[in-house]
Amino acid sequence: MADTAVVEKNQGIQFGKKERKLLTDPLNDNNPITVQVLGICSALAVTTGMKNATVMAVAVVFVCLFANVITSALRKAIPKQVRMIVQLVIIATLVTVVELVLKAYAFESYKQLSVFIGLIITNCIVMGRLEAFAMANKPYESALDGLGNGIGYGIILLMVAAIREFFGKGEFYGYKIIGPSPEYAINTLESSLFGWYQGNNLMVLFPSAMFVIAVLIWAHRAWNPKLVDVS
């Protein structure tokens, strides 16, 4: 954790209480997934394994950060009538950059994520932050806001993926931990000590992401009661 006020060389760029709040608020009180309910689609499809989830999280942080900065820098030049389209063009460009780079340097992930890379464009977190924050704030603050929201999203993504990968496949980030063959660290063949253990294949399927997120929301709200839905 940074101290309350780290003043960097460049005067004007400060990292004080307000800036820290911009960065940490989306991690808890205003989490994009569990509180704002934005960007669910990709959270479901790519969380079968940690590897894909990591690539997706990094991609979203990148898009969120730069879309916020660019929009914020252009905010006075963007004509109000075509605001939405301009924002979408900026996002779509960044997403295309992500796609081209992944295709060149992380081909396996590119193959596995397929259409879901494109769907970052409609990841409402990015769009939502542009509309709600970047259009009204300076680039530096927007950068922090983008970073915070991207990371807040990424953390939930990784948590869901870790749960699904471990209980579904008995693996963690591709390392075989528990499963019915000698390749795993804990072998669950019938003769061994852990013979009673069975991987839960439901965790690999799409709907399980819904259940995992529901439980995460439940836990989050039980721990942070001010978020409870009173309606």
């Binding site: 569990t34 399927l205 992401a209 819904m210 529901a214 709200r221 839905d229």
Partner: peptide, 20 residues
């Protein structure tokens, strides 16, 4: 419904069940 699960949490569970 337990308070912390009300609203959003329940909607997720329901969607998961419908998906299944």
């Amino acid at each position: 419904v337990p308070p912390a699960l009300r609203g959003l949490g329940m909607a997720f569970l329901l969607t998961g069940l419908m998906g299944m």
